[in-house]
Simulated scan of single mutants.
Amino acid sequence: MKILVAGAGSVGRSISRELISHGHEVTLVDRSPDAMRISSVPDADWQLADACDVDALAEAGAGTADVVVAATGDDKSNLVISLLSKTEYGVPRTVARVNNPKNEWLFDDAWGVDVSVSTPRIMTALVEEAVSVGSLVSVFTFHQSGALMHELTLPDDSPVIGELVSEVELPPHTVLAAILREYRPITPDADERFERGDELLFLTAREGESTLGEIPVIFTADDEPAPDPTRADPAPQLG
């Protein structure tokens, strides 16, 4: 893919190196001469220009770019770059860096942002994921579709341990996307059983957000429903 990265600071350079190592063609754009550290990413095409300018974006190749990454340290600039890329050049996909979490609500399709990346938000989610067992942790929001990704680590006393994935009913508009077990991703097939310490990744549509709270409640042993005497082997239910 042809990718234009606006902002040649440490974040932009790091992103560019990774993309180039994966075989992508990268153009790095920054308006500051001090940011022109060409030797740090020698395989990129460097442009000294203001990516907030329509003509500068054109000269940098926005018209033929598959992806534009707005990675500057200024949220206003990242929004302008994303909007111009979408509206003026029809870039298929834009990714924008959010520096201040208070501005995160602005980074949506109204400003031409397909995906927003908030480093503080990601770090918070990773910290919560590392220390939270039995609690639902927000990991990521797909702004284009509105879908949500959440993680839940099964505690040792979870009533679903040993149960088949197919026997656990999830809330509406929610699917179990993957199980992480011993650092390996596992497809949650119907004949797969839950094990202690499993990390569960859920995807939920926007309209299912209000029912997310049902997941950690039901996945906690204290809330395990009383056995149904009419059933020999009752299965735990979610929702």
Results as ranks from 00 to 15, higher is better:
residue 36 M to F: 00
residue 133 V to R: 12
residue 205 A to C: 02
residue 80 V to M: 08
residue 153 T to P: 10
residue 68 V to T: 02
residue 109 D to H: 13
residue 81 I to W: 02
residue 1 M to V: 10
residue 94 T to F: 09
residue 169 E to Q: 14
residue 19 L to N: 01
residue 164 L to V: 10
residue 121 R to Y: 10
residue 210 S to H: 10
residue 226 A to C: 08
residue 117 V to G: 01
residue 194 F to C: 03
residue 121 R to W: 08
residue 25 E to H: 03
residue 229 P to L: 07
residue 147 A to H: 11
residue 209 E to N: 11
residue 222 D to I: 10
residue 28 L to W: 00
residue 216 P to G: 04
residue 177 A to T: 10
residue 193 R to Y: 08
residue 129 E to I: 09
residue 196 R to S: 14
residue 73 G to D: 01
residue 15 I to V: 11
residue 157 D to I: 03
residue 5 V to M: 02
residue 5 V to W: 02
residue 7 G to S: 03
residue 237 Q to T: 15
residue 179 I to G: 02
residue 155 P to T: 00
residue 84 L to K: 08
residue 170 L to H: 07
residue 134 G to V: 02
residue 39 S to Y: 08
residue 129 E to T: 14
residue 218 I to L: 15
residue 219 F to P: 05
residue 75 D to P: 00
residue 14 S to E: 06
residue 120 P to T: 04
residue 141 T to L: 12
residue 48 L to E: 06
residue 73 G to T: 01
residue 87 T to Y: 07
residue 184 R to H: 13
residue 110 A to Y: 13
residue 194 F to L: 05
residue 167 E to H: 07
residue 145 S to R: 07
residue 239 G to H: 13
residue 89 Y to D: 09
residue 106 L to T: 06
residue 112 G to D: 04
residue 149 M to C: 12
residue 183 Y to D: 15
residue 120 P to E: 04
residue 69 V to K: 09
residue 150 H to G: 09
residue 104 E to H: 06
residue 74 D to H: 11
residue 208 G to L: 00
residue 80 V to K: 05
residue 102 K to T: 10
residue 210 S to D: 15
residue 214 E to Q: 11
residue 233 D to P: 06
residue 50 D to F: 00
residue 189 D to M: 08
residue 146 G to D: 02
residue 80 V to S: 06
residue 88 E to W: 08
residue 164 L to H: 14
residue 239 G to P: 09
residue 120 P to Y: 05
residue 229 P to W: 09
residue 102 K to P: 09
residue 213 G to Q: 13
residue 185 P to C: 08
residue 224 E to F: 05
residue 39 S to P: 04
residue 217 V to N: 11
residue 29 V to G: 04
residue 63 G to Y: 02
residue 147 A to E: 12
residue 142 F to I: 06
residue 44 A to E: 01
residue 199 E to Y: 13
residue 229 P to Q: 08
residue 135 S to N: 14
residue 40 S to W: 02
residue 138 S to M: 12
residue 121 R to P: 04
residue 186 I to S: 04
residue 102 K to C: 07
residue 78 N to T: 05
residue 136 L to Q: 01
residue 12 G to E: 00
residue 12 G to R: 00
